[in-house]
């Protein structure tokens, strides 16, 4: 028989960290949707699952107090300072948040497209990031806003930019005895436009053939002050296209400039042929969709 699995439900971050550091082969989970599939198919056999679902103050969208996710976390950032997401916030929480839709439309869009509603109701933003699939929608959305991860470990908390978190498919800089606690998203400032587009074959319950995010923040004169272009399934991990961002920054945003950003992003995309999709098609879609997503963000109008 397979080694018995333990299922532990700590009531605090400290307790969770202590379990992770004492039990070898323990794995933190929140919604557990990905991990459970792995266990069932025997691709994965952790000794214990440490559930983060019952720890207070890990599921919230601050400052949005209207959602189910609001757990009354006392301190936090204000609306002017961006948003603070508890790592155990579900994709469904983000989907249901009108506030997120207004202030972080690309994150809202990305989270709303993950799996089915049933999966979004339990799968968490933190889990999607830590699972580190190349297609992780919410990570591609959050990369646009220079999100920072708050990671708790035995030595206390540390912060790491999301863009530096991923190492490879399924591999991150999260230590074995660490958990992701919060995702900090700074206020992108006024005149920010962003969108996320999940390119799929069918319309529901899909892994993206390609995920494309774009964000531009214009200065008072209408020049691009800051640009972010992020891609899913274009590399072994969710990535930014720094080259495309360079094309956009400091320029007057036009349809032609957006198209050029697409060309540059495509030229630099690390696409490859897999049975799920052909490399040339993915590259071409980067070229086509980057300018489209910029247009969809509303920045051009």
């Amino acid at each position: 028989m397979a080694a018995a699995l333990d299922y532990l439900r700590p009531a605090s971050v400290a307790e969770a960290l202590s379990l992770l550091s004492t039990i070898e082969g323990a794995q933190p989970v929140a919604g557990a949707t990905d991990v459970w599939v792995g266990i069932r198919s025997k691709k994965h056999s952790p000794k214990a699952l440490v559930s983060l679902k019952n720890i207070p103050n890990l599921r919230f969208i601050l400052p949005d107090r209207e959602t189910d996710a609001y757990e009354g976390r006392a301190e936090g950032v204000t609306g002017d300072s961006g948003v603070l997401l508890g790592a155990a916030t579900t994709h469904g929480d983000v989907e249901d948040s009108a506030w997120m839709k207004t202030h972080f439309p690309a994150v809202h869009q990305a989270c709303s497209g993950v799996g089915s509603r049933q999966v979004r109701n339990v799968a968490t933003v933190g889990g999607n990031i830590c699972n580190a699939a190349p297609c992780a929608d919410s990570a591609v959305g959050l990369l646009l806003y220079d999100a920072t991860l708050v990671i708790a470990g035995p030595a206390g908390e540390r912060e790491l930019p999301l863009s530096e978190f991923f190492v490879g498919p399924g591999e991150t800089r999260l230590g074995p005895a660490e958990i992701l606690k919060e995702v900090k998203v700074p206020n992108p400032g006024p005149r920010t436009y962003a969108w996320y587009w999940k390119h799929t074959r069918r319309k529901g319950v899909e892994l993206p053939l390609l995920g494309v995010g774009a964000r531009v923040t214009l200065d008072a004169d209408g020049m691009v002050e800051k640009a972010r272009v992020s891609l899913g399934v274009c590399a072994p991990m969710p990535t930014r296209s720094y080259e495309a961002e360079k094309v956009l920054e400091g320029q007057k945003l036009t349809a032609e400039l957006a198209a050029e950003a697409g060309e540059v992003a495509a030229a630099n995309a690390l696409v490859r042929d897999t049975w799920r999709g052909r490399g040339w098609y993915r590259r071409e879609m980067v070229r086509v969709l980057v300018p489209r997503v910029i247009k969809l963000s509303g920045a051009l109008s």
Binding site: R201, R202, G204, V205
Partner: peptide, 8 residues
């Protein structure tokens, strides 16, 4: 295997 969903 891309069976169609309600959204399709």
């Amino acid at each position: 295997y891309k069976i169609l969903t309600c959204l399709d």
